[in-house]
């Protein structure tokens, strides 16, 4: 009697794990502010679902709440990979409303944006702890990748044993320096792209299917 119960439990556990393995992987798009995370999220969502995820802006901290697009089905080589894309707020160690004043923003709006951006960083870190199965780490390839934020975030991602792809974005800009990003994170694969122009997205999708499929 006990044996049969054990076997039944064991079978139902196996079935449960079988189904959970087929759940879409939740892929977090992380990186510092203004790296092009939302532009990439929108590019992926538009390419495979026709919808966008959120508004893009050249003003930092436009994304202040994590946004999710579920069941994005990416087809590669006759196979399809389904992921949930989570666009997260840019992670930083300092938020200062005066930065937004330079973008012709009123002080009250700038202070509010600053507060929301800070909440957004807290949310992004929380998602990283609890809710993502893999990470697309987006960097602006015209900027210096040797920063405390990048080192710390990539370190945390590695500590979680999460699969991660480093995306060197903004290759359409003349100052783009892919090599510098490859050097900063040699332990991970770096893929150059321009999310804005859609350059090299095929390789991005190939790698997403490889890493998160």
């Amino acid at each position: 009697m006990g044996l049969i119960t054990d076997i039944r439990d064991s079978i139902s556990r196996s079935i449960a794990s079988l189904f959970s393995a087929e759940d879409p992987k939740r892929i977090g798009i992380y990186g510092p502010p203004n790296a092009g995370k939302t532009t990439l999220a929108n590019r992926i969502a538009r390419d495979w679902t026709g919808d966008a995820i959120g508004p893009e802006s050249h003003i930092p901290h436009e994304t202040r709440r994590a946004r999710r697009k579920e069941n994005v089905e990416i087809e590669r080589d006759g196979k399809s990979v389904t992921i949930d894309v989570v666009d997260t707020p840019g992670v930083t160690t300092k938020v200062d409303y005066t930065e937004f004043l330079e973008h012709d923003m009123e002080k009250d709006d700038a202070v509010r944006r600053s507060r929301e951006a800070t909440e957004g960083v807290a949310e992004a870190m929380h998602w990283l702890r609890e809710d993502v199965d893999g990470v697309l780490y987006v960097l602006d390839s015209t900027k210096d990748p040797f920063t405390q934020v990048n080192t710390m975030l990539v370190g945390i991602i590695e500590s979680q044993d999460l699969p991660v792809l480093i995306l060197a974005n903004k290759t359409d800009l003349p100052e783009s320096n892919i090599r510098r990003i490859e050097n900063a994170f040699p332990q991970h694969e770096t893929i150059p792209l321009s999310a804005l122009e859609g350059d090299n997205m095929d390789e991005v999708y190939d790698k997403i299917a490889d890493y998160f499929g």
């Binding site: 992670v91 930083t92 160690t93 300092k94 938020v95 200062d96 409303y97 005066t98 700038a110 202070v111 600053s114 507060r115 800070t118 909440e119 960083v121 807290a122 949310e123 870190m125 929380h126 990283l128 702890r129 934020v149 710390m152 975030l153 945390i156």
Partner: peptide
């Protein structure tokens, strides 16, 4: 409107700040 964030602390906490 001016904040300093300790990412390690934010990451380590089980509870998290959702509104300031």
């Amino acid at each position: 409107g001016q904040y300093e964030l300790n990412l390690m602390e934010l990451y380590d906490r089980e509870e998290y700040i959702i509104a300031l």
